[in-house]
Design a protein around this nucleic acid. Structure first.
Lengths: 198, 198
DNA sequence: CCTACCGATCGGTAGG
DNA sequence: CCTACCGATCGGTAGG
């Protein structure tokens, strides 16, 4: 079994991306701390030392995964804030975007959700800042919509936390090849948040 | 600083329990895999080797934490099933019990939620069995209540997963010394699940 | 509950 | 991308 040619499938995507994808999957499955660089290397099909030609450190991988997701979520909330629309429409757009980001890369979403605490400073602080910002701005969206009479009055803090927990819990039950689209899921979330007059 | 007497506070609870409590806190904070027995020993104030006089292995600690919680949750659902009451009342009781179990030991709830995957077989399979049982029985409660016309018709699977994600997400935002009681939180969850005629 | 220690494995580097 | 290797740390044991 001598490999005389490069295989097409493996040369399609750059090694660095391939490493990141496999790392995301491993971190999702057993966590950042429980996966060694040797585990990763073996899953990629190279030696552990060779990983360091493409990646500076184990934490760099985690950092990349977490901040890519954070960036996507942040973009989504800014987009919804800047939209000229009713609050229910803004919320609907944000929920759809949030769901879509998660479903686009479920493994990365799980790592983002569960493994950020293994980031070291100053990344950890930065990450938590972004996360709190997102929460705060979602809460404000709900508060303003409620004050405008476009949502049923609720405890905005509670609803925000509950909604986020539910959204971020999607990977726990979502079946990748099931019949549910991001739009379907977003719709399910929206029922109960619109005013009854709608 | 020679310790000539045993201090009262530290002799109050058995060492084994103390180790378990501190382990729960460490596992909650940085995960099972990222905490070493030396970390635990140092937090307890003894040498690593001394832990093994009280505990068989690192995993035994995780096992104890996870299955204690699983047992409590299981007891709660059985109690609610056996109660003669309307479905909304059954659900209310279950939600209150679930919230109470989480708030009674937030750290253990977080470990239960996040660290079970580090259990080895056959414990892992057993754990997942219990977990699925709980989910299934909650879903059935909601389905039966809906068929009985006591809940607004919804997608029972979706509602079950969403409710559980929200409940299990409580530790992410709950402030221990805040003004919210388990009853307050359970009430917040119940709005939206009762029929409008109520 | 401690000292002393085991083999295994960790993240990462040197040098090619 | 590999071989060879580093010091540090891991879970756990022996023997007291």
């Amino acid at each position: 079994m001598v490999r005389t040619k490069k295989e097409k499938a493996s040369t399609r995507i750059p090694r660095k991306d391939q490493i990141e994808i496999i790392a995301t999957d491993l971190f999702k499955e057993r966590g950042f701390a429980a996966n060694s660089m040797r585990d990763l290397a073996s899953a990629v099909g190279i030696e552990a030392a060779s990983l360091y030609s493409h990646v500076q450190s184990k934490e760099e991988l985690l950092h990349t995964i977490c901040f890519k997701m954070a960036h996507d979520f942040f973009e989504a909330i800014e987009k919804s804030e800047n939209k000229t629309a009713t609050y229910p429409d803004k919320l609907q757009e944000l929920i759809l975007a949030h769901v879509s980001i998660i479903l686009r890369n479920v493994a990365a979403a799980v790592v983002f959700q569960n493994e950020w605490r293994h980031l070291s400073e100053p990344y950890l602080s930065h990450f938590l800042e972004l996360r709190e910002q997102y929460e705060t701005r979602l809460r404000i969206l709900i508060q303003e919509g409620t004050e405008a009479g476009e949502f049923i009055p609720t405890d905005a803090k509670f609803i925000t936390h509950t909604l986020l927990s539910s959204l971020n819990g999607i990977p726990q039950w979502y079946v990748p090849d099931g019949e549910l689209t991001p739009e379907n899921i977003a719709d399910l979330f929206l029922n109960g948040f619109k005013t009854t007059k709608n």
